[in-house]
């Protein structure tokens, strides 16, 4: 697979990998049968993502997308984080092979799930995609 140096960097040295105990929101998307699952843990303070961790089962692109996406939204408000698109993640990675674009989709979806999980726990209305 022809990956950019940035993809290889995030794959080899993933940022924010792990889990958060007592997290404020968790989002898990994907399916083991398809070969990729992404799980995002959020810690939220004053409407901002104060900490974020991920766990990913998947290919190089899936792991690199998780790492890049978490880095891009750490410290951002929930509204800003919600707007992170899979395209932006792929661009920040200097592109993904066309067949791997769905891996960056997974990161966007996992973040949405985690934010909505947080909102639900707070008794707030979840947001629509």
């Amino acid at each position: 697979m022809d990956y950019s140096l940035k993809v290889m960097d995030h794959f080899s040295n993933p940022r924010n990998m792990g889990s958060i105990e007592n997290s404020d929101g968790v989002g898990e998307v994907g399916n083991p049968a398809c070969g990729d699952i992404m799980k995002i843990y959020l810690k939220v303070e004053d409407n901002r993502i104060s900490d974020i961790k991920f766990q990913t089962f998947g290919c190089g692109a899936a792991i690199a997308s998780s790492s890049m996406a978490t880095e891009m939204i750490k410290g951002k408000t929930l509204e800003e984080a919600w707007k992170l698109s899979n395209k932006a993640v792929a661009e920040a990675l200097d592109g993904l092979p066309p067949i791997k674009m769905h891996c960056s989709m997974l990161a966007e979806e996992a973040i949405h799930e985690a934010i909505n999980d947080y909102l639900k726990k707070k008794g707030l209305e979840p947001w629509d995609d």
Partner: peptide, 14 residues
Amino acid sequence: EYIEGESLLLLLNA
């Protein structure tokens, strides 16, 4: 179990 093959190949390649 629990891991995916392409990641495995990339790390082996390294």
